[in-house]
Simulated assay, not measured.
Amino acid sequence: MNTSTALTLRDPWALVPSLGNLDAYIAAVNRLPMLTQEEEVRLARRYREHNDLEAAGKLVLSHLRLVVSVSRQYLGYGLPQGDLIQEGNVGLMKAVKRFDPSQGVRLVSYALHWIKAEIHEYILRNWRMVKLATTKAQRKLFFNLRSLKQSLKGEATDADSHRATLTDREIDAVARELNVKREEVIEMETRLAGGDVALEPSTDDSEESFAPIAYLADESSEPTRVIEAHHRDALATDGIARALDELDARSRRIVEERWLKVNDDGSGGKTLHELASEYGVSAERIRQIEAAAMKKMRKTLAAYA
Protein backbone atom coordinates (compact mmCIF):
# COMPACT_ATOMS: atom_id res chain seq x y z
CA MET A 1 0.00 0.00 0.00
CA ASN A 2 1.45 3.40 -0.90
CA THR A 3 0.84 6.77 0.72
CA SER A 4 -1.63 7.99 -1.87
CA THR A 5 -3.77 4.87 -1.40
CA ALA A 6 -3.87 5.35 2.37
CA LEU A 7 -4.68 9.02 2.07
CA THR A 8 -7.65 8.51 -0.25
CA LEU A 9 -9.51 6.06 1.96
CA ARG A 10 -12.84 7.41 3.16
CA ASP A 11 -12.55 5.37 6.35
CA PRO A 12 -8.86 5.22 7.34
CA TRP A 13 -9.72 3.28 10.52
CA ALA A 14 -10.78 0.32 8.36
CA LEU A 15 -7.08 -0.44 8.01
CA VAL A 16 -6.63 -1.06 11.76
CA PRO A 17 -7.89 -4.22 13.49
CA SER A 18 -9.32 -4.21 16.99
CA LEU A 19 -7.02 -3.94 19.99
CA GLY A 20 -8.52 -7.26 21.09
CA ASN A 21 -5.88 -8.88 18.86
CA LEU A 22 -2.85 -6.90 19.99
CA ASP A 23 -0.30 -8.59 17.73
CA ALA A 24 -2.44 -8.01 14.64
CA TYR A 25 -3.05 -4.40 15.68
CA ILE A 26 0.66 -3.65 16.14
CA ALA A 27 1.56 -5.36 12.87
CA ALA A 28 -1.11 -3.33 11.04
CA VAL A 29 -0.13 0.08 12.41
CA ASN A 30 3.56 -0.60 11.68
CA ARG A 31 2.66 -1.23 8.03
CA LEU A 32 0.83 2.07 7.67
CA PRO A 33 2.80 4.72 5.74
CA MET A 34 4.05 7.85 7.44
CA LEU A 35 3.04 11.27 6.11
CA THR A 36 5.49 13.66 4.54
CA GLN A 37 5.72 17.09 6.14
CA GLU A 38 3.80 18.63 3.21
CA GLU A 39 0.98 16.06 3.53
CA GLU A 40 0.84 16.57 7.28
CA VAL A 41 0.55 20.36 6.96
CA ARG A 42 -2.10 20.07 4.26
CA LEU A 43 -4.24 17.68 6.30
CA ALA A 44 -3.81 19.70 9.50
CA ARG A 45 -4.97 22.86 7.72
CA ARG A 46 -7.98 21.05 6.25
CA TYR A 47 -9.01 19.95 9.71
CA ARG A 48 -8.22 23.25 11.43
CA GLU A 49 -9.88 25.50 8.84
CA HIS A 50 -12.73 23.29 7.60
CA ASN A 51 -13.25 20.81 10.47
CA ASP A 52 -12.50 18.01 8.02
CA LEU A 53 -12.78 14.89 10.19
CA GLU A 54 -11.43 12.67 7.42
CA ALA A 55 -8.21 14.68 7.46
CA ALA A 56 -8.03 14.41 11.25
CA GLY A 57 -8.50 10.63 11.01
CA LYS A 58 -5.60 10.33 8.57
CA LEU A 59 -3.35 12.36 10.88
CA VAL A 60 -4.22 10.07 13.78
CA LEU A 61 -3.81 6.94 11.68
CA SER A 62 -0.32 7.84 10.50
CA HIS A 63 0.87 8.29 14.11
CA LEU A 64 -0.57 5.17 15.73
CA ARG A 65 2.84 3.49 15.59
CA LEU A 66 4.16 6.31 17.81
CA VAL A 67 1.60 5.40 20.48
CA VAL A 68 2.64 1.74 20.32
CA SER A 69 6.27 2.75 20.74
CA VAL A 70 5.53 4.98 23.73
CA SER A 71 3.34 2.33 25.38
CA ARG A 72 6.29 -0.08 25.53
CA GLN A 73 8.05 2.29 27.93
CA TYR A 74 5.33 1.66 30.54
CA LEU A 75 4.99 -2.13 30.45
CA GLY A 76 6.76 -2.46 33.81
CA TYR A 77 3.70 -1.24 35.72
CA GLY A 78 1.76 -4.45 35.21
CA LEU A 79 -1.03 -2.92 33.11
CA PRO A 80 -2.16 -4.42 29.76
CA GLN A 81 -0.39 -2.91 26.77
CA GLY A 82 -3.70 -2.76 24.92
CA ASP A 83 -5.09 -0.45 27.60
CA LEU A 84 -1.95 1.71 27.51
CA ILE A 85 -2.27 2.01 23.72
CA GLN A 86 -5.95 2.89 24.01
CA GLU A 87 -5.19 5.71 26.44
CA GLY A 88 -2.28 6.87 24.32
CA ASN A 89 -4.58 7.01 21.29
CA VAL A 90 -6.85 9.34 23.25
CA GLY A 91 -3.85 11.61 23.86
CA LEU A 92 -2.98 11.46 20.16
CA MET A 93 -6.50 12.56 19.22
CA LYS A 94 -6.29 15.46 21.66
CA ALA A 95 -2.96 16.46 20.09
CA VAL A 96 -4.41 16.39 16.58
CA LYS A 97 -7.34 18.53 17.74
CA ARG A 98 -4.98 21.21 19.10
CA PHE A 99 -2.17 20.95 16.54
CA ASP A 100 -1.31 24.17 14.71
CA PRO A 101 0.77 23.49 11.58
CA SER A 102 1.76 27.16 11.31
CA GLN A 103 4.05 26.78 14.33
CA GLY A 104 6.59 24.86 12.26
CA VAL A 105 6.61 21.82 14.59
CA ARG A 106 6.00 18.28 13.38
CA LEU A 107 2.98 16.53 14.81
CA VAL A 108 5.14 13.67 16.11
CA SER A 109 6.96 16.06 18.46
CA TYR A 110 3.80 17.85 19.55
CA ALA A 111 1.80 14.65 20.10
CA LEU A 112 4.45 13.00 22.28
CA HIS A 113 3.52 15.13 25.30
CA TRP A 114 -0.21 14.43 24.96
CA ILE A 115 0.29 10.69 24.51
CA LYS A 116 2.50 10.40 27.59
CA ALA A 117 0.16 12.61 29.64
CA GLU A 118 -2.83 10.34 28.98
CA ILE A 119 -0.84 7.19 29.73
CA HIS A 120 0.50 8.74 32.95
CA GLU A 121 -3.02 9.60 34.08
CA TYR A 122 -4.23 6.08 33.30
CA ILE A 123 -1.42 4.50 35.30
CA LEU A 124 -1.99 6.82 38.26
CA ARG A 125 -5.71 6.02 38.24
CA ASN A 126 -5.29 2.28 38.04
CA TRP A 127 -1.97 1.07 39.37
CA ARG A 128 -2.24 -0.46 42.81
CA MET A 129 0.62 1.46 44.44
CA VAL A 130 0.25 5.04 43.34
CA LYS A 131 -3.02 6.19 44.87
CA LEU A 132 -1.03 8.76 46.87
CA ALA A 133 1.08 10.04 43.96
CA THR A 134 -0.94 13.21 43.58
CA THR A 135 1.60 16.05 43.58
CA LYS A 136 3.74 16.94 40.59
CA ALA A 137 6.90 15.97 42.49
CA GLN A 138 5.46 12.58 43.49
CA ARG A 139 4.44 11.83 39.93
CA LYS A 140 7.89 12.75 38.71
CA LEU A 141 9.37 10.45 41.37
CA PHE A 142 7.04 7.60 40.43
CA PHE A 143 7.80 7.71 36.73
CA ASN A 144 11.57 8.24 37.08
CA LEU A 145 12.57 6.11 40.06
CA ARG A 146 12.98 2.89 38.05
CA SER A 147 15.33 4.41 35.47
CA LEU A 148 17.32 6.25 38.15
CA LYS A 149 17.71 3.03 40.14
CA GLN A 150 19.02 1.24 37.08
CA SER A 151 21.59 3.95 36.37
CA LEU A 152 22.70 3.98 40.02
CA LYS A 153 23.05 0.17 40.07
CA GLY A 154 25.30 0.26 37.02
CA GLU A 155 25.32 -2.91 34.92
CA ALA A 156 22.53 -4.71 36.83
CA THR A 157 19.62 -6.01 34.79
CA ASP A 158 16.33 -4.14 34.85
CA ALA A 159 14.72 -6.84 37.00
CA ASP A 160 17.64 -6.87 39.45
CA SER A 161 17.73 -3.07 39.72
CA HIS A 162 13.99 -3.03 40.39
CA ARG A 163 14.34 -5.45 43.31
CA ALA A 164 17.54 -4.05 44.79
CA THR A 165 17.04 -1.70 47.72
CA LEU A 166 18.57 1.75 47.46
CA THR A 167 21.39 2.63 49.83
CA ASP A 168 21.27 5.82 51.91
CA ARG A 169 23.68 7.48 49.50
CA GLU A 170 21.55 6.50 46.51
CA ILE A 171 18.37 7.72 48.23
CA ASP A 172 20.01 11.12 48.79
CA ALA A 173 21.10 11.20 45.14
CA VAL A 174 17.58 10.45 43.88
CA ALA A 175 16.06 13.03 46.22
CA ARG A 176 18.45 15.71 44.93
CA GLU A 177 17.91 14.74 41.30
CA LEU A 178 14.10 14.89 41.53
CA ASN A 179 13.87 17.64 44.15
CA VAL A 180 11.84 15.61 46.64
CA LYS A 181 12.29 14.64 50.28
CA ARG A 182 14.33 11.52 51.00
CA GLU A 183 11.34 10.19 53.00
CA GLU A 184 9.26 10.33 49.82
CA VAL A 185 11.93 8.38 47.94
CA ILE A 186 11.95 5.70 50.66
CA GLU A 187 8.15 5.44 50.66
CA MET A 188 7.89 5.18 46.87
CA GLU A 189 10.75 2.68 46.77
CA THR A 190 8.94 0.52 49.32
CA ARG A 191 5.70 0.65 47.38
CA LEU A 192 7.38 -0.07 44.04
CA ALA A 193 9.23 -3.03 45.53
CA GLY A 194 6.09 -4.50 47.10
CA GLY A 195 4.20 -7.39 45.62
CA ASP A 196 0.54 -8.22 45.28
CA VAL A 197 -0.94 -10.61 47.85
CA ALA A 198 -4.07 -12.57 46.93
CA LEU A 199 -6.88 -12.21 49.46
CA GLU A 200 -8.50 -15.44 48.33
CA PRO A 201 -6.74 -18.82 48.77
CA SER A 202 -5.40 -20.70 45.79
CA THR A 203 -7.54 -23.29 44.04
CA ASP A 204 -5.67 -26.12 45.73
CA ASP A 205 -7.79 -27.87 48.35
CA SER A 206 -5.01 -28.78 50.76
CA GLU A 207 -5.46 -27.95 54.44
CA GLU A 208 -2.36 -25.75 54.29
CA SER A 209 -3.96 -23.40 51.77
CA PHE A 210 -4.42 -20.09 53.57
CA ALA A 211 -4.79 -16.49 52.47
CA PRO A 212 -5.36 -13.16 54.29
CA ILE A 213 -9.11 -13.40 53.77
CA ALA A 214 -9.12 -16.30 56.27
CA TYR A 215 -7.80 -14.24 59.16
CA LEU A 216 -8.85 -10.65 58.45
CA ALA A 217 -10.91 -9.13 61.26
CA ASP A 218 -14.68 -8.97 60.98
CA GLU A 219 -15.32 -5.24 60.57
CA SER A 220 -18.94 -5.60 61.66
CA SER A 221 -17.74 -6.19 65.24
CA GLU A 222 -15.36 -3.25 65.25
CA PRO A 223 -16.58 -0.62 67.81
CA THR A 224 -16.84 2.31 65.40
CA ARG A 225 -18.78 0.13 62.93
CA VAL A 226 -21.20 -0.86 65.68
CA ILE A 227 -21.77 2.79 66.59
CA GLU A 228 -22.30 3.70 62.94
CA ALA A 229 -24.82 0.87 62.55
CA HIS A 230 -26.79 2.05 65.61
CA HIS A 231 -26.73 5.59 64.22
CA ARG A 232 -28.07 4.44 60.84
CA ASP A 233 -30.82 2.44 62.56
CA ALA A 234 -31.85 5.48 64.60
CA LEU A 235 -32.01 7.65 61.48
CA ALA A 236 -34.07 5.01 59.67
CA THR A 237 -36.66 4.85 62.45
CA ASP A 238 -36.88 7.80 64.85
CA GLY A 239 -35.27 10.23 62.39
CA ILE A 240 -37.65 9.41 59.52
CA ALA A 241 -40.67 9.53 61.85
CA ARG A 242 -39.67 12.94 63.15
CA ALA A 243 -39.07 14.27 59.63
CA LEU A 244 -42.49 13.03 58.47
CA ASP A 245 -44.14 14.77 61.44
CA GLU A 246 -42.82 18.09 60.12
CA LEU A 247 -44.83 17.75 56.86
CA ASP A 248 -48.40 18.77 56.16
CA ALA A 249 -50.91 15.95 55.61
CA ARG A 250 -50.82 16.03 51.80
CA SER A 251 -47.03 16.16 51.54
CA ARG A 252 -46.68 13.37 54.07
CA ARG A 253 -49.07 11.11 52.23
CA ILE A 254 -47.34 11.74 48.90
CA VAL A 255 -43.94 10.84 50.38
CA GLU A 256 -45.34 7.76 52.11
CA GLU A 257 -47.19 6.55 49.02
CA ARG A 258 -44.19 7.16 46.78
CA TRP A 259 -41.34 5.84 48.94
CA LEU A 260 -42.52 4.05 52.09
CA LYS A 261 -45.24 1.76 50.80
CA VAL A 262 -44.63 -1.64 49.22
CA ASN A 263 -47.33 -3.41 47.24
CA ASP A 264 -48.29 -7.02 47.84
CA ASP A 265 -46.33 -8.09 44.76
CA GLY A 266 -43.16 -6.48 46.11
CA SER A 267 -43.23 -3.53 43.71
CA GLY A 268 -42.78 0.07 44.80
CA GLY A 269 -45.34 2.71 45.70
CA LYS A 270 -47.60 4.82 43.53
CA THR A 271 -46.46 6.74 40.50
CA LEU A 272 -46.69 10.51 40.05
CA HIS A 273 -49.54 10.05 37.59
CA GLU A 274 -51.54 7.85 39.97
CA LEU A 275 -51.27 10.44 42.76
CA ALA A 276 -52.03 13.24 40.30
CA SER A 277 -55.30 11.53 39.39
CA GLU A 278 -56.25 11.20 43.07
CA TYR A 279 -55.61 14.86 43.85
CA GLY A 280 -56.87 16.22 40.54
CA VAL A 281 -53.63 18.01 39.69
CA SER A 282 -50.83 17.48 37.17
CA ALA A 283 -48.00 14.99 37.68
CA GLU A 284 -45.57 17.91 37.63
CA ARG A 285 -47.39 19.48 40.59
CA ILE A 286 -47.08 16.22 42.56
CA ARG A 287 -43.36 16.14 41.71
CA GLN A 288 -42.96 19.72 43.02
CA ILE A 289 -44.75 18.88 46.28
CA GLU A 290 -42.60 15.76 46.67
CA ALA A 291 -39.37 17.71 46.04
CA ALA A 292 -40.30 20.38 48.61
CA ALA A 293 -41.21 17.70 51.15
CA MET A 294 -37.93 15.85 50.62
CA LYS A 295 -35.96 19.07 51.07
CA LYS A 296 -37.74 19.77 54.35
CA MET A 297 -37.13 16.19 55.53
CA ARG A 298 -33.43 16.40 54.75
CA LYS A 299 -33.11 19.49 56.94
CA THR A 300 -34.91 17.76 59.79
CA LEU A 301 -32.74 14.65 59.46
CA ALA A 302 -29.57 16.77 59.39
CA ALA A 303 -30.61 18.48 62.62
CA TYR A 304 -31.52 15.13 64.18
CA ALA A 305 -28.16 13.64 63.22
Rank of each mutant, 00 (worst) to 15 (best):
T237V: 09
N179R: 14
Y77G: 02
K261P: 02
V130Q: 13
V226Q: 03
R169W: 02
A175L: 06
A214E: 12
G20M: 04
D11W: 13
Y122P: 00
L9N: 11
I289M: 14
L92E: 00
F99K: 04
G78V: 00
D245K: 15
Y77I: 03
D233W: 02
K270V: 02
R176C: 05
T135V: 13
E228A: 11
L272E: 05
K181C: 11
R139V: 12
D52V: 11
H50P: 12
V108D: 02
K295R: 15
L178G: 01
Q103F: 02
D168E: 08
E54P: 14
P201L: 12
D23N: 05
E177P: 08
G88Y: 02
V226G: 01
V108M: 07
R125W: 00
R169I: 11
A193E: 05
K153F: 01
A14G: 10
T135Y: 10
H120N: 02
M188Y: 08
G76V: 07
D238L: 14
V67A: 02
K140N: 11
S4G: 04
D172I: 12
H120V: 06
A28I: 00
Q103D: 11
A173F: 07
L61G: 04
E87G: 04
L92P: 05
R258F: 03
R242Q: 10
E189V: 06
I254P: 00
A249F: 07
